[in-house]
Design a protein around this nucleic acid. Sequence first.
DNA 1: ATTATATACAACAGATACGTTGTAAAAATT
DNA 2: AATTTTTACAACGTATCTGTTGTATATAAT
Lengths: 72, 72
Amino acid sequence: MNEKKDLLLKLGSRVRDIRLSKGLTQTELAHSLGKDQQSIQRLETGNVNPSYIYLLQIAKGLNVELNELLNF
Amino acid sequence: MNEKKDLLLKLGSRVRDIRLSKGLTQTELAHSLGKDQQSIQRLETGNVNPSYIYLLQIAKGLNVELNELLNF
DNA sequence: ATTATATACAACAGATACGTTGTAAAAATT
DNA sequence: AATTTTTACAACGTATCTGTTGTATATAAT
Protein backbone atom coordinates (compact mmCIF):
# COMPACT_ATOMS: atom_id res chain seq x y z
CA MET A 1 0.00 0.00 0.00
CA ASN A 2 1.88 3.04 -1.24
CA GLU A 3 -1.45 4.79 -0.92
CA LYS A 4 -1.20 4.44 2.81
CA LYS A 5 2.41 5.54 2.93
CA ASP A 6 1.57 8.59 0.86
CA LEU A 7 -1.19 9.58 3.23
CA LEU A 8 1.08 9.21 6.22
CA LEU A 9 3.80 11.23 4.55
CA LYS A 10 1.35 14.02 3.82
CA LEU A 11 0.11 13.99 7.37
CA GLY A 12 3.68 14.12 8.63
CA SER A 13 4.49 17.08 6.42
CA ARG A 14 1.40 18.84 7.66
CA VAL A 15 2.45 18.35 11.28
CA ARG A 16 5.94 19.57 10.52
CA ASP A 17 4.74 22.65 8.70
CA ILE A 18 2.48 23.66 11.54
CA ARG A 19 5.15 22.95 14.14
CA LEU A 20 7.70 25.07 12.32
CA SER A 21 5.20 27.86 11.80
CA LYS A 22 4.86 27.97 15.56
CA GLY A 23 8.63 28.07 16.00
CA LEU A 24 8.77 24.80 17.92
CA THR A 25 11.38 22.08 17.81
CA GLN A 26 10.41 18.39 17.81
CA THR A 27 11.73 18.16 21.34
CA GLU A 28 9.72 21.14 22.55
CA LEU A 29 6.51 19.82 21.06
CA ALA A 30 7.18 16.36 22.41
CA HIS A 31 7.98 17.51 25.92
CA SER A 32 4.90 19.70 26.08
CA LEU A 33 2.91 16.51 25.58
CA GLY A 34 4.98 14.26 27.84
CA LYS A 35 6.49 12.50 24.86
CA ASP A 36 9.97 12.05 23.45
CA GLN A 37 11.46 13.72 20.41
CA GLN A 38 11.53 10.39 18.63
CA SER A 39 7.75 10.08 18.75
CA ILE A 40 7.35 13.33 16.86
CA GLN A 41 10.10 12.39 14.45
CA ARG A 42 8.35 9.15 13.51
CA LEU A 43 5.09 10.97 12.98
CA GLU A 44 6.59 13.68 10.80
CA THR A 45 8.49 11.24 8.62
CA GLY A 46 5.36 9.19 7.96
CA ASN A 47 6.63 6.11 9.72
CA VAL A 48 3.58 5.61 11.91
CA ASN A 49 -0.18 5.52 11.50
CA PRO A 50 -1.18 7.51 14.59
CA SER A 51 -4.29 6.87 16.61
CA TYR A 52 -7.21 9.24 17.05
CA ILE A 53 -6.20 10.08 20.62
CA TYR A 54 -2.62 10.67 19.55
CA LEU A 55 -3.76 13.06 16.84
CA LEU A 56 -5.85 14.95 19.37
CA GLN A 57 -2.79 15.32 21.57
CA ILE A 58 -0.69 16.62 18.71
CA ALA A 59 -3.35 19.14 17.77
CA LYS A 60 -3.42 20.34 21.34
CA GLY A 61 0.37 20.65 21.46
CA LEU A 62 0.29 22.69 18.28
CA ASN A 63 -2.59 24.83 19.51
CA VAL A 64 -4.74 24.04 16.50
CA GLU A 65 -8.09 22.36 16.03
CA LEU A 66 -8.01 18.78 14.84
CA ASN A 67 -9.83 19.94 11.74
CA GLU A 68 -6.98 22.25 10.92
CA LEU A 69 -4.42 19.54 11.45
CA LEU A 70 -6.19 17.18 9.07
CA ASN A 71 -7.41 19.72 6.56
CA PHE A 72 -5.11 19.36 3.58
CA MET B 1 -8.07 7.92 31.52
CA ASN B 2 -11.83 8.39 31.51
CA GLU B 3 -11.00 11.35 29.34
CA LYS B 4 -9.83 9.01 26.64
CA LYS B 5 -12.82 6.72 26.98
CA ASP B 6 -15.15 9.68 26.75
CA LEU B 7 -13.54 10.85 23.54
CA LEU B 8 -13.79 7.41 22.00
CA LEU B 9 -17.44 7.12 23.01
CA LYS B 10 -18.19 10.45 21.42
CA LEU B 11 -16.42 9.47 18.24
CA GLY B 12 -18.34 6.20 18.17
CA SER B 13 -21.65 7.97 18.59
CA ARG B 14 -20.74 10.31 15.78
CA VAL B 15 -19.98 7.41 13.46
CA ARG B 16 -23.22 5.69 14.40
CA ASP B 17 -25.28 8.82 13.86
CA ILE B 18 -23.86 9.38 10.41
CA ARG B 19 -24.21 5.72 9.47
CA LEU B 20 -27.85 5.65 10.51
CA SER B 21 -28.53 8.91 8.71
CA LYS B 22 -27.37 7.18 5.57
CA GLY B 23 -29.60 4.19 6.24
CA LEU B 24 -26.73 1.75 6.51
CA THR B 25 -26.32 -1.26 8.79
CA GLN B 26 -23.01 -2.01 10.49
CA THR B 27 -22.63 -4.97 8.17
CA GLU B 28 -23.26 -2.92 5.05
CA LEU B 29 -20.77 -0.27 6.05
CA ALA B 30 -18.23 -2.90 7.02
CA HIS B 31 -18.57 -4.91 3.83
CA SER B 32 -18.27 -1.83 1.66
CA LEU B 33 -14.83 -1.38 3.20
CA GLY B 34 -13.79 -5.02 3.19
CA LYS B 35 -14.24 -5.25 6.94
CA ASP B 36 -16.40 -7.26 9.30
CA GLN B 37 -19.44 -6.07 11.21
CA GLN B 38 -17.53 -6.51 14.44
CA SER B 39 -14.97 -3.90 13.45
CA ILE B 40 -17.65 -1.27 13.09
CA GLN B 41 -19.31 -2.39 16.30
CA ARG B 42 -16.14 -1.90 18.29
CA LEU B 43 -15.63 1.52 16.82
CA GLU B 44 -19.18 2.68 17.50
CA THR B 45 -19.14 1.46 21.08
CA GLY B 46 -15.90 3.28 21.83
CA ASN B 47 -13.89 0.16 22.43
CA VAL B 48 -11.04 1.04 20.10
CA ASN B 49 -8.79 3.99 19.44
CA PRO B 50 -8.80 3.93 15.64
CA SER B 51 -5.84 4.90 13.49
CA TYR B 52 -5.71 7.77 11.04
CA ILE B 53 -5.93 5.45 8.04
CA TYR B 54 -8.85 3.59 9.59
CA LEU B 55 -10.70 6.87 10.13
CA LEU B 56 -10.10 7.84 6.54
CA GLN B 57 -11.63 4.54 5.43
CA ILE B 58 -14.67 5.03 7.63
CA ALA B 59 -15.19 8.52 6.26
CA LYS B 60 -15.01 7.14 2.76
CA GLY B 61 -17.51 4.40 3.56
CA LEU B 62 -19.89 6.99 4.96
CA ASN B 63 -19.37 9.32 2.03
CA VAL B 64 -18.33 12.20 4.21
CA GLU B 65 -15.18 14.26 4.55
CA LEU B 66 -12.90 13.41 7.43
CA ASN B 67 -13.55 16.88 8.76
CA GLU B 68 -17.23 16.13 8.97
CA LEU B 69 -16.62 12.85 10.73
CA LEU B 70 -14.48 14.51 13.40
CA ASN B 71 -16.37 17.77 13.66
CA PHE B 72 -18.36 17.46 16.86
C1' DA C 1 38.17 22.05 17.05
C1' DT C 2 34.90 21.50 20.53
C1' DT C 3 30.35 21.93 22.16
C1' DA C 4 25.58 22.42 21.73
C1' DT C 5 21.38 21.90 19.15
C1' DA C 6 18.15 19.66 16.00
C1' DT C 7 16.71 15.77 13.46
C1' DA C 8 16.90 10.83 12.02
C1' DC C 9 17.17 5.80 12.50
C1' DA C 10 17.15 1.22 14.87
C1' DA C 11 15.57 -1.87 18.25
C1' DC C 12 13.23 -3.27 22.38
C1' DA C 13 9.05 -4.16 25.47
C1' DG C 14 4.37 -3.67 26.58
C1' DA C 15 0.00 -2.47 25.06
C1' DT C 16 -3.46 -2.43 21.74
C1' DA C 17 -5.50 -2.20 16.91
C1' DC C 18 -7.48 -4.92 13.48
C1' DG C 19 -9.19 -8.90 11.12
C1' DT C 20 -11.40 -12.93 12.26
C1' DT C 21 -14.42 -16.70 14.27
C1' DG C 22 -17.92 -17.95 17.26
C1' DT C 23 -21.84 -16.81 19.71
C1' DA C 24 -25.51 -14.34 22.12
C1' DA C 25 -28.92 -10.92 22.72
C1' DA C 26 -32.11 -7.72 20.94
C1' DA C 27 -35.16 -6.00 17.50
C1' DA C 28 -37.84 -6.37 13.50
C1' DT C 29 -40.53 -8.95 10.18
C1' DT C 30 -43.62 -12.43 8.71
C1' DA D 1 -44.46 -17.69 18.01
C1' DA D 2 -40.99 -18.45 14.73
C1' DT D 3 -37.67 -16.54 11.68
C1' DT D 4 -34.71 -13.07 10.10
C1' DT D 5 -32.02 -9.15 10.84
C1' DT D 6 -29.15 -6.24 13.48
C1' DT D 7 -26.09 -5.33 17.07
C1' DA D 8 -23.04 -6.79 20.94
C1' DC D 9 -19.42 -9.36 23.32
C1' DA D 10 -15.39 -12.45 23.90
C1' DA D 11 -11.15 -14.37 22.45
C1' DC D 12 -7.36 -15.35 19.35
C1' DG D 13 -3.25 -14.16 16.22
C1' DT D 14 -0.68 -10.94 13.69
C1' DA D 15 0.72 -6.56 13.13
C1' DT D 16 1.71 -2.15 14.66
C1' DC D 17 1.58 1.78 17.85
C1' DT D 18 3.86 4.09 21.58
C1' DG D 19 7.28 5.06 24.94
C1' DT D 20 11.91 4.42 25.59
C1' DT D 21 17.06 3.97 25.13
C1' DG D 22 20.91 4.36 22.39
C1' DT D 23 23.15 6.35 18.71
C1' DA D 24 24.28 8.81 14.38
C1' DT D 25 24.32 12.76 11.36
C1' DA D 26 24.14 17.59 10.31
C1' DT D 27 24.26 22.26 11.37
C1' DA D 28 25.26 26.15 14.23
C1' DA D 29 27.67 28.45 17.92
C1' DT D 30 31.47 29.46 20.88
